[in-house]
């Protein structure tokens, strides 16, 4: 692929990927949402996070893998415990990363 086309792709992808993030805030900020819509929107973040967690832990390679061979599931367990016990994102992150490093290097599944 030649250089012009690559730059064209980069600029096109930039517009496509940035507009869905910018436009809702730009267009909707002036409106007052009805209470029920605001309540509905308040559930978007927990739903999105649950979806992201489920996909990233249970399908780390893009394909659903619910088995004892999926080390992401094993690393998930100490991460949950650290999050509940410490209530601290940084400590939880370190616990998760350390657990994954151990599993990757020493368990070898």
């Amino acid at each position: 692929m030649d250089n012009t086309n690559i730059w064209l792709i980069i600029i096109g992808v930039s517009i496509i990927s940035l507009s869905p993030r910018i436009l809702p805030v730009a267009l909707l900020s002036r409106f007052e949402f009805p209470a029920i819509i605001e309540e509905w929107l308040s559930f978007v973040a927990p739903a999105v996070l649950a979806g992201l967690t489920a996909v990233s832990v249970l399908a780390p390679e893009g394909v659903i893998d619910i088995s004892i061979n999926n080390i992401y599931i094993w690393a998930f367990l100490p991460t949950v415990i650290a999050a509940v016990k410490t209530k601290n994102l940084f400590v939880t992150l370190l616990a998760g990363i350390a657990a994954m490093a151990c599993l990757y290097n020493f368990v070898g599944i």
Partner: peptide, 21 residues
């Protein structure tokens, strides 16, 4: 991967999900 960094984002999602409930 050997440093466990592949789990950085899944760990973050998990933790923030728990905080958000």
């Amino acid at each position: 991967d050997q440093f466990g960094l592949g789990f950085a984002l899944p760990a973050m999602y998990t933790c923030l999900l728990i905080f958000m409930i």
